[in-house]
């Protein structure tokens, strides 16, 4: 991942949380850091299959001309807000993909699609960044001090994952990921 993600991460760590962090704030900062606008569109995707996607084009390509020079994030229409928030920020994290992490050929696309539908022992850079982008999005939505406090409160029996999910306005199944012991290690590896 591009080293500029650290700039976003450090920015988000200083944000008060709770209250929940605005996705517009995170996305705006990504755009400022990377010097790129992003077009966000809604589409009638079948959410059983696909909740969202990210597309960017080679310069002077038909894709770029078609979309005003901007990368595009597509969100499925009708998702609950917590899913909209996670999918939008996870997809915009792919602005930080390095060249060798981009899905830019038929072979890479086929491997990516197969890896999302069946377990695989080998993880290509393209597939790795799919998982990393989720962790990056979660780290932006929940600064580390807040994350540690949530962990303490859950261990003490003073709250539960559902309440944390409501406070962060994120899907509960991803709050589970956020509060695991290895979450911090994964984010450290991404930042290093």
């Amino acid at each position: 991942m591009n080293k500029k993600f650290k700039e976003l991460y450090d920015f988000c760590q200083r944000l008060p949380c709770p209250p929940s962090i605005s996705r517009n704030l995170i996305c705006g900062k990504v755009q400022e850091i990377m010097g790129q606008h992003v077009k966000i569109v809604k589409h009638g995707l079948d959410t059983n299959v696909l909740r969202g996607l990210f597309l960017s084009g080679q310069s002077a390509s038909r894709f770029v001309k078609q979309n005003g020079g901007n990368p595009v994030v597509v969100l499925a229409r009708g998702m609950p807000e917590e899913w909209d928030r996670l999918v939008q920020v996870k997809e915009i994290m792919h602005l930080f993909d390095e060249d060798d992490e981009m899905t830019s050929s038929a072979d890479q696309l086929e491997e990516l699609l197969n890896s999302l539908t069946a377990p695989s022992r080998m993880m290509s850079p393209q597939v790795r960044t799919e998982f990393e982008a989720v962790y990056m999005a979660l780290a932006c939505y929940c600064p580390e001090p807040a994350r540690q406090q949530f962990i303490k409160d859950i261990e003490a029996g003073h709250t539960e994952e559902y309440e944390v999910a409501l406070k962060l306005r994120l899907p509960q199944q991803y709050v589970k990921t956020l509060l695991t012991p290895h979450f911090g290690n994964v984010v450290e590896q991404i930042l290093s």
């Binding site: 589409h43 009638g44 995707l45 079948d46 959410t47 059983n48 299959v49 696909l50 909740r51 969202g52 996607l53 990210f54 597309l55 960017s56 084009g57 080679q58 002077a60 390509s61 038909r62 894709f63 770029v64 078609q66 990368p71 597509v74 499925a76 999918v87 996870k90 997809e91 792919h94 993909d97 981009m102 899905t103 830019s104 696309l109 086929e110 990516l112 699609l113 197969n114 999302l116 539908t117 393209q126 960044t129 799919e130 982008a133």
Partner: peptide, 28 residues
Amino acid sequence: LGVKNIKLFPGSSRDISAEQLAREINKV
């Protein structure tokens, strides 16, 4: 189109196929 990067957020089903994912991409 000349796309240089495509990335995906899969849906809720555990039984999706590469063909189903690709069908949604084509619709988009």
